[in-house]
Design a protein around this nucleic acid. Structure first.
Lengths: 221, 221
DNA sequence: AACTTTATTTAGGAATAGCTAAAAGTTAAT
DNA sequence: ATTAACTTTTAGCTATTCCTAAATAAAGTT
């Protein structure tokens, strides 16, 4: 239905739309897609012709509902394949991206449905990102990596992404386990290490560590 | 390393080489690949430049050892994915081809190795075709579909590809089961139905039936 | 408000992989 | 051995998706 290139643009626009509320700029897209701005402009015009994006010259693009649906389908496939690679084929969570970038373009409704079923209809991928269902709906609660949180956030531990027992022992020693409540106090910009509060104690975690801890955002009253 | 198109050409040449001992003709390739002869000529030149085929104008192409290696890698991936689809994702053996045509181009050594391991290193795909190993070696004994045999062949039943119990009952009634010896007496060209000898009895099987019966070729003394 | 900087678009070009139509080579037949 | 039939190749076009360089629009500065 759509070319690989078109799908990549839709996915990129989708991701950037979640950061910037207004139109997604040509330059941000070219950055993310490793192309030049001129190429982006051209492709955007084609997507607009196909009713996948709304485009106003010099003011960026936004997905139409058709474009969003298509983007979500690609995201769904990407995250399902990542889950497959990690859970069935012994990939590490940081090894899957490149391959999933290829697999996400395989076109077969039956394949996606059966893969989803085979994996037990997972709601989150190995990076903790939510997997859209066949209708494009995302799970409500947003599981994230601890490293994705901002200063001041409050969260609850919901999983760990490292099979090494030394990592789990380390966490245990720090008093971090399943359902532990956490508050992000400070993030150092130079190495992205994080100071968090756990049970009234302040501890410091490296980026490596916070990358491997999944949390659920707390809704503050 | 190679484009999807290049891989498709290499695979097509590989398959045609097994039928015709001399060079593979431009027209047969264009037929198999659903392209025009002129397009084939062009691509062949590119493959020759890359040392994947030997090409002599007007006399067809043959794979070099590099080309053969590459073709076998694609065939390996194709057949592994077909096995995956049938054995893990509930595809029927006649539903897998299109999807496998896409999956065979995914490029990741680790993916192929892990998939092979995950499937238990199968030697044959759901069509009964042999799966090359990572070095391009094929299993010696050649399991085939009964429909692939020529008149006069002798073979032994080694499997059936139909989950319907009615098919198995039908075979049982005809006296065909695991390890039954078979001789192909005649093949009707108009409907590809086959007359075979089983236990001194002659029976006739439709193409649908012979497609679903796997046999092992008998080596004649 | 005019000018500079930055971002975006336009214009024209390259590579890939397909096409048609015409030319040239090979094979078969008289 | 020449011609007819068929196959293959060449030449010239098209579409996709990228590129660079130049032109134009928007945003920021004084």
């Amino acid at each position: 239905m759509f070319t690989q290139s078109e799908e990549n643009y839709l996915k990129a626009i989708f991701h950037l739309q979640q950061e910037m509320s207004d139109g997604v700029s040509t330059s941000r897209l070219s950055e993310l897609l490793n192309t030049k701005a001129a190429s982006v402009t051209e492709m955007i015009k084609k997507l607009a012709d196909k009713n996948l994006v709304n485009y106003k010259k010099y003011y960026g693009v936004q997905l139409t509902s058709l474009g969003k649906k298509q983007a979500l389908s690609v995201v769904r496939k990407h995250r399902l394949w990542e889950s497959f690679l990690v859970e069935r084929l012994n990939f590490k969570w940081d090894e899957v991206h490149e391959v999933a970038e290829q697999l996400e373009h395989i076109s077969s409704t039956k394949l996606v449905e059966e893969l989803d079923k085979f994996l037990g209809r997972p709601q989150y991928d190995p990076h903790g990102d939510p997997i859209p269902d066949a209708n494009g709906n995302l799970p409500k609660a947003t599981k994230k990596r601890l490293s994705q949180l901002k200063e001041g956030s409050q969260a609850v531990c919901k999983g760990f992404n490292d099979n090494s027992s030394s990592f789990l022992k380390y966490l245990d020693k720090q008093g971090i386990g399943m359902d532990t409540s956490i508050e992000v106090l400070q993030i150092e910009s130079f190495d992205e290490s994080m100071t968090i509060k756990v049970d009234e104690k302040e501890i410091s975690l490296s980026k490596t560590a916070t990358d491997h801890i999944y949390v659920e955002d707390q809704i503050r009253a």
